[in-house]
Design a protein around this nucleic acid. Structure first.
Lengths: 149, 149
DNA sequence: CTACGCTCCGTATAATAGTACGGTGTCAAG
DNA sequence: CTTGACACCGTACTATTATACGGAGCGTAG
């Protein structure tokens, strides 16, 4: 039988063996049971998919905790549907916010590139200006008196 | 004259004073010169914008190093235009890749939500399946013999 | 059956990104 | 002039996210 050992699984997912173990310890992926005879663990394809998902989510700026929350939406097909739905909607908002920011950055880069090639000195294609909208959670005001001292 | 001290700047940007200092040490923002008489530093609005940009970029999964690279595109309006352009194009690719992934996740969440509300048991609206494309940089193969041992 | 590579497991170390602390100096209100 | 809040600065600590190490065990090729 073709066993997928942890090394194979890690290779397929594009991470190191230690990273797989780390995710197991963090509860992001389930550690397959050790065979009764006491040999090596056999990893299912599902684990590889989960690891890849985790990497992608990380690249999109989700923490491991947030990634676990995303995975938990997937994990239980039997759990309270309304609850899953609610959490999914929360995540969707987060995703949409990120997407909007990313789109602003994309536009800014495109403008920068467009303004660059010819001959001018590309005066002020501010990338910074691109990401001015959509402040995340309301940060503590810290008494913002601003222009009224 | 209305001085913007580090505390005010941090408050406006929605971060703590220590974070501002940290970014200064990392070279992401410039530390304003200390007044000759030796008082407090006066932070320009530009710094607030930069900090906000940094936070947004971080939320989109860019490391501080990558964020610095993004900022560097903005910083020098006099530098070699072709160089800036090239780097901007590299970043644009990254951003587009992220956007594509994010879009897949958004669709998956939408499908999940759509499949959820009624009454069924939402069999297999796999979020994981959503992010299967676009493997980033080719990870070291580690001799991927796969199904041929 | 032996050699080699890999697994297993606990623990240690590292890199990144902040956050906190403590002593001293500065400013502005009272 | 005193007092309270904040700036300044170096250093220390924390959390997150991995990576590395070392010794013992397993398993397959030769």
């Amino acid at each position: 039988m073709k066993m997928m050992t942890i090394g194979k699984a890690a290779g397929k997912a594009g991470v190191g063996v230690e990273t797989v173990r780390f995710y197991e310890r963090q509860g992001l992926i389930e550690q397959p049971p050790k065979p009764i005879n006491g040999g090596y663990r056999d990893y299912p394809e599902e684990t590889v998919r989960r690891i890849r998902f985790i990497r992608q989510a990380r690249e999109l700026g989700f923490s491991l905790r947030e990634t676990a929350e995303l995975l938990s939406l997937n994990a239980d097909p039997s759990t309270d549907c309304a609850d899953v739905r609610e959490r999914a909607q929360g995540k969707l908002l987060e995703v949409e916010r990120k997407a909007a920011q990313l789109d602003r950055m994309r536009l800014a880069l495109e403008r920068l590139i467009a303004a660059c090639p010819g001959q001018g000195a590309l005066k002020a294609c501010s990338i910074i200006e691109a990401l001015k909208g959509g402040e995340g959670v309301a940060v503590k005001p810290t008494q913002d008196k601003e222009t009224t001292p």
